[in-house]
Design a protein around this nucleic acid. Structure first.
Lengths: 192, 192
DNA sequence: CTATTCATTTATCATATGATAAATAATCAC
DNA sequence: GTGATTATTTATCATATGATAAATGAATAG
């Protein structure tokens, strides 16, 4: 693809590590844009993650099944990177899927080719290092949010930090993200 | 320090990204070794994390206070890296402390100097990228372990995956790591 | 060694959340 | 638009865990 077709992506990159023109071109060369309809999965569960996604438009979630129950790991909105890191970084098959919750336009970056670029472009390796460091920090905070808070507190925190999630996403998906059943979430919301 | 004084550290590094002799020398130059007594803190809560630690010997934990309650974020044993990433990667003060649980010998690597080395040694940047990618993946798995499991299941999983934790660490610290009170953990242990 | 502090267990009671079922409400296919 | 599917709420009951208190056991200082 051309760099000019990926402006939101490169805008996003600037927040972490601005790239040289050459760096941008090389990333553009291994990227593609696709659109996806609501309720479709980007990839089936069980496949190894070989693409890093960037959400131009739409909403998505990563989910998996635990004992047959659908569990949401995380939600993603416009201008964010989506990757199943437990597969991307280990090369093992992912037991998770990325599902589109609102019609989406998504940039896909081939990860094998990206990792090859790391060798000739330290700036690209640094960029993704910083992106994933930030994601790591978020995950650490997520654990703090879970530990020792009641479901009601977690719900209220989400309401404050990311009201979008509660406005735009089916509650059944939010419940498992909060670590409770859908019925409990409904009850908590009813409390007032 | 000399490279020869840091063999366990460089052995550990080899699992992620083997370094050139020059790379090792440069890391050795910004490292130091110290011993710490049981129950001491490496750094007070509130200071910004400027050191990445490697545990040659001993046991440690990262902990913080939430609503006045001591919560264990994680445990660390011999041959592991310890860092409060939410401070290291953001430059913000850390609300967490590293406490020594068994007399320890610890390598400290100055993080500002390390980050400078990244510029001239891509191999070093890559090494730490991989180390923290692996830690990130572990953290993601940790969340899966918390979500939708009872305290008893979490306890039994820990017993299986890391019996060392339960054998060598005071239960009061383990309880908060599992997300329950110390009294509940004691009851769960008593069950069978 | 003794006393003091600290860690762990045990017991009781209160409560938040799960499980299940059923009633509404909203969405979707045709 | 209508019916069928899917999502959400409401209700009831069961249970795991928290809060508190007290008893026992272990570690530590002097």
């Amino acid at each position: 693809m051309e760099v000019t077709e990926l402006l939101p992506l490169f805008q996003f990159f600037k927040k972490y590590n601005p790239l040289s023109t050459d760096g941008e071109k090389n990333i553009a060369a291994i990227s593609s844009i696709n659109t996806f309809k609501k309720n479709t999965d980007l990839q089936p569960i069980g496949h190894t993650c070989k693409t890093i996604y960037f959400l131009n438009k739409g909403i998505a979630r990563i989910y998996y099944f635990k004992d047959g129950i659908d569990i949401t790991e995380n939600f993603y909105f416009e201008n964010s990177i989506i990757a199943r890191v437990e597969s991307l970084f280990t090369g093992k098959p992912s037991l998770k899927a990325i599902q589109i919750l609102e019609d989406a336009e998504i940039v896909g970056i081939n990860s094998n080719q990206l990792f090859k670029l790391y060798d000739s472009f330290p700036e690209i390796e640094r960029l993704f290092r910083k992106i994933f460091e930030a994601a790591y920090v978020e995950t650490v905070h997520r654990i703090e949010g879970i530990q020792f808070h009641t479901a009601e507190e977690r719900y209220k925190a989400l309401l404050q930090e990311a009201p979008d999630v509660l406005m735009r996403i089916p509650l059944k998906y939010v419940a498992s993200y909060l670590g409770i059943t859908q019925v409990s979430l409904s009850r908590i919301r009813g409390l007032k």
